[in-house]
Design a protein around this nucleic acid. Structure first.
Lengths: 259, 259
DNA sequence: CGATACATTGATAAACCTCAAGCTTCGTGG
DNA sequence: CCACGAAGCTTGAGGTTTATCAATGTATCG
């Protein structure tokens, strides 16, 4: 756990422009985060628990089977969740984007490891304090339940994708899902930021880096996408959606807005 | 939706030996179910909502994208959750055993279809009434959150399995996971009931029925298992666990007992 | 400018799927 | 009680996708 390192290296510059007690109110991802369940009064309580942190690229947030001592809301950057197997292979379980919550399960020990893909800022809450808050504020618990249910739906989506589809379908579905997630945060755009590398995408989709690379190359050759330094532009969206097939995401979560 | 058919065909014989108001107290799976969160007083409230139902083998509980009008606790038998794709292929997302809850996400529409593998008994709760109850009883909501988190963990397990492992590892992991689930209900046993067919297992693990059949045959040939009419006996448990590799289930849920 | 990490491309091989046929099991009805 | 049919399961032969191995290309950062 490199939290102290993170703190010492970065914390001074995090959220520097808000006074204690107002930081949450000023939070840019609040309405996308679990904190949207709280009113102004409750928010100050949460604010008292909040510890802003930053992590450098590749820095570890926590490691599988470690005791859970905190939960987090991602405020900037992307976090990857993963497991490593004895033979060195890795399965990425998901990516947390700004507004996403880390620690839904409120379990004693981490079920996976997490580290920063690029530079990441988080809002950290000590587990016991946060848990007490969920016991006092049913709204917050309800919101936690909604987030967990949403994650479960996403996981079932992923099961579907991994179980039955070809490399091309997996990758086009991934691109469209990422577009939808960024769109929810930043508004619609055909350009999709992909801060994670090819190996990350491969380990997420159960493919090898070579297969991922080949499919990206083919999609670009067929003018479905344009490859950019850290992402892609979706050129033929309807063509891609057709290839992604009926693994479309369910109605939506954007509607959740304020509970 | 065949609920009325289910009711008319079967309901008279369900839970016939308990008076209204005591049915939940007499429920054999209560302590394994979400209802374990409630004390005797709250239980009578829940009892008033409970509608026992039975389903015949292959009978449908609900269909993907239908409006959710109820949630369920399985009391007997096994329910399968699945999605069907335009090309006719099917992905099974999971199996619900006695004590399991159906309808965790409290969403408006079903994200998948569900039907009975064999004869199934459930306890049905109208969605709106159940949801009101979760708002009044934070204990129940907390328990719902725990169940959802547990399902999420199981889904992540499945992602791991589907993404990175061979047919043999998938199947041995499946057998061990089923043994653990039945053990939690009925106590330890090396004989694992598999009420679902080979095609179900294939559609759950992202394999074809032929591959599943071949692996079962090989495991039997190598004296790891013995095939039975509706299940298997695990002969060489440590050998199987070694093949299943470190996809071992996390610490446990059995400890949940009573909250 | 060189070193390192990351990405691409090609050739070969293995795992699993597809297609096809035969075998069990089980329930029904003669 | 046996004959029959349907459904599910097993086994075999051949093909496809994707993994594996290997080499080359490109960007980034001291």
């Amino acid at each position: 756990m490199n939290v102290h390192q993170a703190w010492e290296g970065y914390a001074q510059s995090c959220c520097a422009n808000a006074h204690n007690g107002d930081r949450c109110a000023a939070c840019k991802v609040r309405l996308h985060s679990i904190c949207a369940a709280l009113d102004t009064r409750d928010l100050r309580e949460l604010d008292a628990l909040a510890q802003p942190f930053c992590f450098k690229p590749k820095q570890t947030l926590f490691v599988e089977s470690e005791a859970v001592d905190a939960v987090y809301t991602v405020t900037e950057g992307v976090v990857r969740f993963y497991r490593i197997f004895p033979d060195g292979r890795r399965q990425i379980l998901g990516f947390a984007l700004p507004g996403d919550f880390i620690g839904l399960s409120l379990k004693e020990r981490h079920a996976f490891s997490a580290d920063a893909v690029g530079p990441v800022s988080v809002c950290r809450f000590p587990r016991t304090s946060f848990q007490r808050l969920t016991e006092e504020k049913p709204h917050l618990l309800r919101r936690l339940q909604e987030f967990t249910a949403h994650e479960l739906t996403a996981a079932q989506q992923q099961i579907t994708l991994l179980g039955r589809f070809t490399a091309e379908v997996k990758i086009t579905s991934f691109l469209i899902a990422m577009r939808d997630r960024w769109s929810r945060l930043n508004g619609p755009s055909a350009t999709v930021s992909l801060p994670m590398g090819r190996q990350d995408i491969a380990d997420f989709l159960g493919l090898t880096i070579e297969t991922v690379s080949r499919v990206f190359a083919r999609l670009a050759r067929e003018k479905q996408i344009v490859n950019l330094p850290n992402g892609v532009t979706l050129v033929d969206v309807s063509g891609l959606e057709a290839r992604a097939a009926n693994v479309a995401a369910p109605p939506d979560f954007a509607s959740a807005g304020l509970t």
